[in-house]
Amino acid sequence: MIPASFEYVRANSIEEAIGALQEHGDEAKLLAGGHSLLPLMKLRLAAPEVIVDLGRVDALRGVCETDDGRLAIGAMTSHQDVIDDDLVRQHCGVLADVTAHVGDAQVRHRGTIGGALAHGDAASDLPAALLALDGSVIAQGPNGRREIPASELFVDYLTTALNDDEVVVEVRVPKLDGDWGWRYEKFSRVAQAWAIVGALGIVKRSNGSIEDARVGLTNMGTVPVRAAAVEQALNGNGTDAIADAAQQAAEGTDAPGDLNATPEFRQHLARVLTRRALEAAAG
């Protein structure tokens, strides 16, 4: 219930935060909303020696359009602010809908999009969504900024491609302009629990057929995954292809086993939920 002691650094700018990270190395942890880190610290599963609080870095909040036609969401934007943001709702409503499944109301008020992605938990909802959207994060370090595509961000269990001295400053997602539909099928034991499996289907429809299908899967491995075989089987086909295509949803996944599901049951759920998500998205 009580975190171990730590040294507290309140960053007033991104540069200050990076400086603190450089100074303390892997003894330091960034604190965004705190809804991934603080629970671990309270159970003393994490005990960083230095906490670098990003709460005062106002530059990390808010949503804008980028020159290349995407949305840039400040890493410290809370889940609730993502859900409520007009640009997000207008151009990338799927992100708002998936974010509405994160945690509960109180968690969404504090938790941030950057924090959730940097935590890199394959069982949480946003990593699979970023992956399915072909989104990316902008990381800033001592040598400036770089863009890390979602496909490269999630490396292993709770491990991302971020360096110890990098700060996620932005999340970038495409504008889904055109006839897109989506559905996130989150399957969990109770409303506030993590997904046993989550399947996000995103479909661009064109002349009665599927022009572009994306499927992101939550909690089907150590990292979030795309159901690539399903996507390939659908692109260019009609919606009647969904049921067969969804049978391939578990291909290439590495479903974990736990009290809630054996790997076999997870694979089964992935197929069923992918079918349902895609049917709803295409409908």
Binding site: K42, A105, Q106, H109, R110
Partner: peptide
Amino acid sequence: HLDGRSVKSCTVLAVQ
């Protein structure tokens, strides 16, 4: 309520 929004005060540091 923290600045008007509901939060779980067990998951917020006082310094935040």
